[in-house]
Design a protein around this nucleic acid. Structure first.
Lengths: 188, 188
DNA sequence: GAAAATCTACCTACCTAATGGTAGACAAGA
DNA sequence: TCTTGTCTACCATTAGGTAGGTAGATTTTC
């Protein structure tokens, strides 16, 4: 059996991450999946519905990855390093962050999607803050800076590096930035 | 006398930085400037022409700002701090980076524009590298890390912070990230 | 210096293709 | 038989872009 809905989500994610939310159309998606345009509306009545489902699936995948990192990696810098590796895949495949693609639309983004990506970032910030706080407690992360501020700084660096290094198709440069980032978190 | 071309550039920049390149149309721009859609084509025959002019103007403004920083601020961290302040304005006005808005379009972006924004980032990277190298030489910037890698890391952090903090409409959080960034550049 | 030609900046009217979305038919499974 | 998934055939709107014209300024020519 063929799970068309799942296939639609996969292809749509690739399109949005590759060309932006406003930059892809139902016609593109139909062609990518091998289905007629109207059939997409059966699964996702409107483009906003599709966008919301995309963010939900993306967030769920990340949530699972974050959970895995927390159980498999013990120290703070190691966890941030592993977190950064999640972004690296995007650089290697030439795909940006789904939520960055949506965030760029700013005021034109439907409120529902804006809330969804804000929640995505808020979740990551909370996870990072907890990881950094624990790292400060066990001495693996340098103390003296508010973990919440550090969390924002970590996400910003990785999102920005993904944005720029995808343009330059330069995974090595991304790794370099990740190294500088992680190194700066270690105690001095 | 009314300089329509300049007005078009101003309004178009606001639109692109506010909603993305694919997210604005000649009709939007015509309405913003108070001119007919067809008249825009007199100044900018195609949307790509407009986009290229936008990047050129944006890059020129930045180039002037970078030059000013170099003459007015002496130490490395101070210069990076001043550089970061340039991004802060975007957060305060709810406008992203023009080149980030274009970069998100990825593969769908016309080659000409891709080259233009790559040059934009390359210029900034060169400036930052020189600033950081000078800072390492005069002892105001921590040594031990390749200035080129440091430059990429600086841009990434600021671009990412602008992207995220604009979404959260949080200039204070941007300032916090900038502080963490600059502080990390100081000698230990 | 006047007349003619040219250029600039805008206009109305239109074009074709693409946009997101809808209506209704039809076939396969449970 | 009712639901699910897909189809064809539409729809109105918007996209970027073009054709051709006009009023006013500027330049060229006699």
């Amino acid at each position: 059996m063929r799970d068309t809905r799942a296939e639609l989500l996969i292809q749509a994610e690739t399109l949005v991450r590759g060309r932006g939310y406003a930059g892809f159309s139902y016609a593109d998606l139909a062609a990518a999946v091998g289905i007629r345009k109207a059939s997409i509306h059966h699964h996702f009545p409107s483009k906003v519905d599709l966008g919301a489902a995309l963010v939900a699936a993306y967030a769920a995948r990340y949530a699972a990855a974050l959970e895995a990192i927390r159980t498999e990696v013990a120290d703070g810098p190691g966890r941030i390093e592993a977190y950064g590796q999640l972004y690296l895949g995007g650089v290697e495949q030439g795909l940006g962050c789904l939520c960055a693609a949506l965030a760029i639309e700013g005021e034109a983004l439907p409120e529902r999607l804006r809330r969804a990506i804000a929640a995505f970032f808020a979740d990551h910030l909370a996870w990072l803050e907890a990881v950094l706080r624990a790292g400060q407690a066990d001495g693996s992360v340098r103390a003296g800076t508010d973990p919440a501020a550090l969390a924002r700084y970590v996400i910003a660096t990785l999102e920005g590096a993904l944005l720029m290094e995808r343009l330059f198709a330069s995974p090595d440069a991304f790794r370099g930035t990740l190294a500088v980032l992680v190194d700066g978190l270690r105690p001095r």
